[in-house]
Every structure is written in C-alpha cells, then in structure tokens.
Amino acid sequence: MATKAVCVLKGDGPVQGIINFEQKESNGPVKVWGSIKGLTEGLHGFHVHEFGDNTAGCTSAGPHFNPLSRKHGGPKDEERHVGDLGNVTADKDGVADVSIEDSVISLSGDHCIIGRTLVVHEKADDLGKGGNEESTKTGNAGSRLACGVIGIAQ
C-alpha cells in the first residue's frame, strides 16, 4: 500500500500549488496538507474528481469521485461524495494553506484517490446545502481553477 501521495495543481491562470497526502494505516485517516497560491481571497471548493484525465484541462477530470452514488455534502457529513473535501481558505495575498484530515478518502482500496484528479474551484462549496439540484452534485463551487493528478510519492 502506498502511504504517501502528492498532487501538483496547475491551471490556465495564476492558480498553482502542491498538496501532499499521507496515510499511516490502511483504514486510518489521510492527512492532506500543502499550499495553493494565486486564488482570490475567501473560500474555494476542494474536491477529488473521478478521473485522472487532464487532456482537456480540468474539465476532463469528470464529476466528483463518488463510488457510493451519494449526494454532495461537506467533509463531516454522512451523506457526501468520497471526493468531497470541503473548502480551502485563501488569505488576502491569495494563498491557501491547506491542513485537512479526512477519514473517507484513502490511498488504497475502494476509496483510493491515487490516479484521480484534485481540483480547486472558483467559488465556495455550499456543502450540499444550497437548496438546488446543482448543490447536491457540485456544491455550486463554480469553474475549475486548477487541477492535477494525484500520484504515489516516496
């Protein structure tokens, strides 16, 4: 089992970053940390998408990683996509320092995120509470600013 993974985020604009993942036990939580720069100040949706395909930019990554066919939600919700990591918060300089621990994603097994795409979005994720159909699919997080395929790390 891989215990570490990394993702280099890039987009068409100024947004870029490096996100690290570490899972010490196969059924334990995954620590997610790193930094994203070039964002507007505020909240930005942060999700693992189904495919590791960036051939047409971030759009070819498909929908959120959702092997259990659930509705979109927040990272602490029972009803959520596996890939729903909530929001990252950018400061006035456009930098989001990421520090998350998640017990639904994994670096092995059915919820493995390796080979899938991590995406940072234009807007805040409403965590499935926006009151419309799009909220239950995407959290109304808007366009995909930057993305990268999650790969095994040393």
Rank of each mutant, 00 (worst) to 15 (best):
G34Q: 00
E134L: 11
A153G: 15
H121F: 02
R70P: 03
A5H: 04
V98N: 03
G131R: 11
G83E: 03
R116N: 00
R80S: 06
L85Q: 05
G131Q: 15
R70I: 14
V82P: 11
S135T: 07
T55G: 04
D84T: 02
V98R: 03
P67S: 09
K137G: 14
R116K: 03
G148D: 05
N87A: 05
S103N: 05
I100Y: 13
I19Y: 03
L43G: 06
N54W: 10
C112R: 13
L118Q: 07
E22N: 12
S143G: 08
S26I: 12
I18P: 04
D97P: 06
L127I: 06
I113E: 02
A61W: 01
E50S: 10
N132S: 14
A153D: 15
V95K: 12
C7N: 02
E101C: 07
V104Q: 09
G38N: 15
L85H: 02
G86P: 06
L9D: 00
A2R: 09
F46V: 10
I150R: 02
G139E: 02
E78D: 15
G109N: 13
Q16Y: 09
S69I: 15
S69N: 04
G151P: 00
S106N: 10
I100L: 13
D110K: 09
E25Q: 13
I100T: 13
G94N: 10
E133H: 14
N27C: 14
E134I: 12
K76E: 12
I113V: 14
S69W: 13
I100C: 15
I19M: 15
V119F: 00
T89C: 05
E79K: 11
A146V: 04
H47C: 02
L118K: 00
C7Y: 02
E133P: 07
K71M: 14
V98Q: 06
K92R: 13
R144A: 00
Q16E: 13
T89S: 10
A2Y: 07
G57R: 03
S143A: 06
K129R: 11
D91Y: 14
L127P: 04
V119N: 03
N132D: 15
G17F: 08
H44R: 04
Q16L: 12
E101M: 08
V98S: 05
I105T: 05
S99W: 08
V30T: 07
K76Y: 12
G62R: 02
T136Q: 06
C147L: 01
G115I: 02
K76P: 11
G42Y: 03
S108L: 09
T136S: 07
A146S: 07
L68N: 15
Q16M: 13
D102K: 04
E78G: 13
L68H: 04
K10L: 14
P29T: 06
S26Y: 15
F46R: 02
K92D: 12
V82K: 11
D125T: 01
P75T: 10
C147R: 04
V149P: 09
E133N: 12
A56Q: 10
K76I: 07
N27P: 14
T55E: 03
T138K: 03
K24N: 01
D102F: 15
E101G: 11
G45N: 00
D102R: 05
G115A: 06
C147A: 02
K24G: 09
V98F: 10
T117S: 12
S106K: 08
K31W: 08
L118W: 02
D110A: 12
G109Y: 12
N132K: 13
E50D: 05
H44S: 07
G83T: 01
E78V: 15
G45I: 02
A124V: 11
K4W: 04
N132V: 11
V104P: 06
I18K: 14
H72Y: 02
V95T: 05
G139R: 01
H111R: 12
G148V: 00
V98Y: 15
V149I: 12
G86H: 03
I36H: 00
E134Y: 04
A61G: 04
E25D: 05
R116F: 00
D93P: 10
S35F: 15
T136H: 10
V98C: 08
V104I: 13
I19N: 03
S103E: 15
I18G: 14
G83S: 00
K31H: 04
S99D: 10
N27S: 15
V30D: 02
K37S: 12
G131H: 04
G62C: 03
